[in-house]
Write a protein that binds this DNA or RNA. Structure first.
Lengths: 156, 156
DNA sequence: AGATTGTCAGTAATGATTCTCAATAAGAAT
DNA sequence: ATTCTTATTGAGAATCATTACTGACAATCT
């Protein structure tokens, strides 16, 4: 598979190198419909390269985000979004789940805002944080700090 | 000054209490045009109440956010936004500065998106990351990892 | 006043993220 | 193909923001 073929020129243009680890990380995020945490990506890459370290995953994901290949998604735990196109991420504060909602109007909003301020946009983050329908249905458990631990190990 | 007068009914309605510490925290965030980190608020409150602990500041800010009085702003370090109304935050990757750009259409976008997904919104993050006009004029410096450490101590 | 319940300070604990640095390997040049 | 330069890797320790916990204290109600 050549899904990462486009990586080469991008990295070379920056004096960067194409390594097997980076290809594995790339494939673990780009095109995924989930929003993997660093921990999840780490586990996936580990299946092929048992010796990779977390630091490598962290820095590589950061690099890809700089290149605009993926988007960081905030929350208690950092996640990555490998989908193309602007969209809103709904982040559940209780379960940590993330849902995408595309909206064509976002592009226009972005252009308009950036232009007005003379700002050179590299990446965008549109997020709504709150409670997802499923968690709301489960009743109002403890307040905001209900489900917390080991969130990094799950996907969203 | 009575800026926090509205606090009383809000807190009482929840079985909460109005304390001097909470008033101080309130005044350190609401109406500010900056986006203070928890650390900044902590320092400000400490000037008046040298004995407050970080835990108090954390939980109180969380409480205010739940009440909708302020908005959490995610990132490497948690910040709070005391301004009313949705707006886009332009975050400069080089100098770390944050600029607000209000846009009335955001509210509608938010409502529409949340409704479609049955999502209960608690806070929103509309951010454009890139290079601000001032930094662009200064020419191209280092990459994303330029300004980083002790971010919690600075404002934005 | 006494009872009840919410809040505080202080501090330990937690856990995600980043750093350090020697060893390795990618890409360019020969 | 071999060598050279330098980005990248890995392993673990270190950092730092955020939470949890606990005993003391204070506000409100009866």
């Amino acid at each position: 598979m050549e899904t990462w073929a486009g990586l080469r020129p991008l990295l070379h243009g920056r004096g960067g190198r194409v390594t097997p680890q980076r290809m594995a990380i790339y494939e673990a995020v780009v095109g995924q419909t989930t929003h993997p945490s660093v921990e999840t990506v780490y586990a996936a890459v580990r299946a092929r390269f048992p010796s990779v370290s977390r630091a490598t995953v962290y820095t590589t994901l950061g690099l890809f985000a700089d290149l605009g290949l993926i988007q960081e998604v905030g929350g208690r735990v950092r996640r990555y979004d490998g989908r193309a196109g602007r969209h809103v991420n709904l982040v559940c504060e209780r379960c940590g789940g993330v849902t995408d909602v595309a909206d064509p109007r976002l592009e226009a909003l972005e252009r308009r805002t950036a232009l007005r301020a003379g700002f050179d946009v590299r990446s965008a983050r549109f997020e709504l944080h709150g409670i997802c329908p499923r968690c709301r249905a489960l009743g109002r458990g403890a307040g905001r700090r209900a489900v917390r631990r080991t969130e990094a190990a799950r996907d969203a």
